[in-house]
């Protein structure tokens, strides 16, 4: 069964499954221990290396399990972890499991343009105002009209010394917003890249001052980015393209890495994201099989009551019109053939002498005849007329 069609074969909204979008992706860490090698960390020795790949490799390793930053001996104690997801995803949650006491301040950012620009998703700090210039999130949750980057409490250390930072995209969004109907929420959850900035280590008796017990290193084991491949409701899966890049397996007449536009011939109405109520499939232009290309005309779309705005281009088989639905000049409709028939339009074939022109009636095929001439193609003298020797007046009254 095709998830993008209902039982009757009609298009319906479909979305890829929830996955860990970071799994197997490369993580860029601004600091990783082992270069130069120390007794505890040697980047060139797999048994003592703590590379950033451990953050997204699903724990398939025989060596250490945790990434570890270099020893940081003086402020600023910032370390950045960046993971490119390869394409746009709609985020559900982001989490990072720390192997040591979690930092006291972390900023979570996202990019929607493959790392060219960044915006914050949330902050996690025991000193929101001091570290990020923001008030701590109210206990009642977000109150703004739309989603925003709020400052949440810093992740708590567990009894075993580890910790977990967990962020749900809903945490920054006021209740009641619906993904289908809220473009703002759609924008909020969309990301191509995720960045975590570990900005301040946790120290005993933390007061917010930067005087940590130095040197210090961050350590974490599992970065998860839970989300769905963004396909705007027009695909149920994402697959690697020939270049290995992840792209949506688009349906509903759409195309593009996110199914974000209509396929070339499917432009009878504007592209729209699918919703639970309406698939908003892109519709093929209606060209009666006589054209392979069409363009969208917004004016015509409005005039049609927002039903059809496609205009066929290069109508073939001697057809013409917005839908290639009538015959071009010099041709007429053969009533014995379907409009979609390649030979639906026949040449007028007006007689070169008997007809007054070359264009016939497009419905009946009747050519315009000179006086005294008759017949569909004007090739005979009418009753009471006989052929003359003049090509200008080929039929004259019989004396």
């Amino acid at each position: 069964a095709d998830p993008c069609k209902d039982d009757g074969g009609a298009p319906r909204s479909c979305v890829p499954g929830l996955v860990n979008a970071a799994l197997g992706r490369e993580v860029l860490a601004s600091s990783t221990c082992g270069r130069p090698a120390t007794r505890a960390c040697d980047a060139s020795d797999p048994r003592r290396a703590h590379p950033a790949t451990l953050l997204t490799s699903a724990g398939v390793t025989t060596g250490p399990l945790c990434w570890r930053s270099d020893l940081l001996s003086r402020a600023p104690l910032n370390v950045t972890l960046t993971v490119a997801l390869g394409k746009a995803f709609e985020l559900v949650f982001v989490s990072l499991r720390f192997c040591s006491v979690p930092p006291a301040s972390v900023a979570l950012l996202k990019s929607q343009d493959h790392g060219r620009s960044w915006v914050p998703l949330g902050f996690f700090s025991s000193h929101c105002r001091q570290d990020y210039g923001r008030l701590p999130v109210p206990t009642t949750g977000p109150v703004g009209p739309g989603p925003e980057a709020l400052c949440f409490p810093a992740p708590q250390a567990q009894p075993d010394g580890s910790g977990l930072l967990a962020f749900s995209v809903q945490d920054g969004s006021p209740p009641g917003l619906d993904l289908d109907s809220s473009p703002v929420l759609q924008d909020w959850v969309t990301a191509t890249d995720i960045r975590m900035m570990l900005t301040r280590p946790s120290v005993p008796g933390d007061t917010g001052a930067s005087a940590a017990t130095l040197p210090y290193s961050y350590s974490a084991a599992e970065l998860q980015v839970g989300g769905r491949c963004k396909c705007n409701g027009h695909a149920s899966q994402c697959l690697p393209d020939p270049q290995g890049r992840l792209v949506c397996d688009c349906r509903h007449g759409t195309e593009g890495s996110d199914c974000g536009r209509c396929k070339p011939f499917y432009c009878d109405r504007p592209w729209q994201r699918a919703t639970a109520q309406e698939a908003h499939a892109c519709l093929a232009c209606s060209c009666n099989g006589h054209a392979r290309r069409c363009r969208f005309n917004m004016e015509l779309y409005r005039l049609s009551g927002r039903r059809s705005g496609g205009v066929c281009l290069n109508c073939r088989h001697n057809t013409a019109g917005r839908h290639c639905h009538y015959c071009r000049e010099g041709f007429y409709r053969d009533p014995g053939r379907a409009l979609s028939d390649r030979r639906a339009c026949r040449a007028c074939d007006c007689h070169p002498v008997g007809a007054a022109g070359k264009t016939c009636n497009q419905t009946t095929g009747q050519c315009p005849c000179k006086d005294g001439v008759t017949g569909l193609t004007c090739n005979r003298c009418a009753p009471g007329f006989q052929q003359s020797r003049s090509p200008v007046a080929p039929c004259v009254k019989t004396p």
Binding site: P352, V353, S390, P391, P394
Partner: peptide, 23 residues
């Protein structure tokens, strides 16, 4: 009544060379 089609050979093209070229 079946009317014969116009016989092109019967026309006098002397003054209508242009027309004949079209034909």
């Amino acid at each position: 009544e079946v009317m014969p089609t116009l016989d092109m050979t019967l026309f006098d093209w002397t003054d209508y060379e242009d027309l004949k070229l079209e034909v």
